[in-house]
Amino acid sequence: MAVEMAAKDLIMSAKGIRVEYHDRTTKEAFLALESFDLDVVEGEFVTIVGPSGCGKSTFLKVVNGLLRASAGEIKLKAAAKGRDDAMVFQESALFPWYSVLDNVAYGLVCAGMSKKDARERAKPMIRLVGLEGFGDKYPYQLSGGMQQRANLARALTVDPGLLLMDEPFAALDAQTREIMQSELLRIWDQAKKTVLFITHQIDEAVYLSDRVIVMSARPGRILADIRIDLPRPRDLHVKRTPPFVAYEEQIWELIASQMKTSASQFGGG
């Protein structure tokens, strides 16, 4: 379970989260998450990995307020300025009718800022994520990697206490994904954010995180909470080092055992 920490450092604390879904077509109920506990400490980069459909994205939505749990509660540190949390969504989550700049400024406009001020505040973020000169472009004119940079900038602009990232690189090709991973670490280092990251890629989880939470198949429960003791700053070479590979194997074993269980349920999940 979660490492004990002084209460003042906690950014987020989830206890006993349980989420049920009702499939509208089949009218069946199923459990996405069950007795899920997780603490995240300030400045930490925490990643949740698990098999498809284990409810990891569901948890993020509960934290973000997009979904309500059927039981349990989450305490989220109230940010002195900015939002308590902000979400970086999966692929192509930019509004196609807004320019990149207006997309990045969107969170501030939601918070009631005028469009003009919001644009001014968004500009440095565009620079931070390496999109300088692309502010006037529309999303369809951007590559997948660039779209996800803008997606990240949009969340960073509202200065969130906790940055939630829902498989942001899942749709990218392998090379772009690696570049984006190291870019994310660079930005994380500069922006000094607490991150809760979701992925199904084990190497991504190990490479990015301070802690990796391994989840079981549905209904999602925590199988392991692994601290990644790799030196920072990390570059991509770290992926070829023995400790990295050992972490990968450890997590893979845990998930593979789950796949065997779930294969009998879902025919391969």
Partner: peptide, 17 residues
């Protein structure tokens, strides 16, 4: 969901999405 996630008002949800 994006609009909701950033806490957009109903009015903004309407005009922006």
């Amino acid at each position: 969901q994006i609009a909701q996630s950033f806490g957009a008002s109903k009015r903004l949800l309407f005009t922006s999405v």
